[in-house]
Amino acid sequence: MAERNIYLPYLMRIAKITDEAPAVKTFRLEFINPEEAANFEFHTGQFGMYTAFGEGESTFCIASSPTRKGYIECTFRAVGRVTSALATKEEGDVIGFRGPCGNLFPLEQWRGRNLLFIAGGIALPPLRSVIWNCLDQRDWFEKITVVYGARSVADLVYKHELQDWEARPDIDLVVTVDPGGETADWKGKVGFVPHVVEQLAPPSENTVAIVCGPPVMIRFTLPLLEKLGFTPDSVYTTLENRMKCGHGKCGRCNTGTSFICKDGPVYTLAQLRELPAEY
């Protein structure tokens, strides 16, 4: 008989909550059902639908790396009905998770290449999953560089991990805050992400760029990368359209011939140019 109900979430317990920035939190989630935990697999780049029971589902990325087993992490900003409700949860509370949804970052294809991650604001979480994934299999890649910017020092997420990355010899981290967002003791850069990238002028040779951030950052960063010699198929980004079902049915994320929840969220710049700019 019955087919599986694809709309039914897994029940997850919040094992740990980290306050990242104003209104931004990270949840570490563990499966309540051990069988589900054992069968669960995902790839970096994929996302999920998170339930605040009583309020509904919201879509955001899995921010942890698939190399870290036994849990998933997500980072979100309390903006809408569901994320605001999630933000009131406490450790030990139960939420729902559906996923993993969507495609993945093709790490296999990136073997032997340099990786340049560029992230702005609350868009570091999807890249954090990839960065940790790559660091956990460090010998696959050549140089790894991360440029991360936020509006202010307070708005930077994963502050402790940034310190870790700073200290590691196998990753170059450049952190910047928008002009006016610096504190008296701020030791990082001050300036918008595209400017910082321009100054940094990373070589494009044998390099993959992975860019994620607010539309304005994307708009100024992509042409810059092209100027630096990055080809459209060596630049990756991840889209966040509004979604409901996560199965390419509800139609909400349909953009051109793509269902972003199935064919995305990861696209190369070359693929993006084939889609209408409705994201």
Partner: peptide, 14 residues
């Protein structure tokens, strides 16, 4: 066939 998914709940059930 486009659809929305909506939550209806009180403090105990939904």
């Amino acid at each position: 066939a486009c659809f929305d998914i909506q939550e209806e709940a009180d403090t105990k059930e939904g």
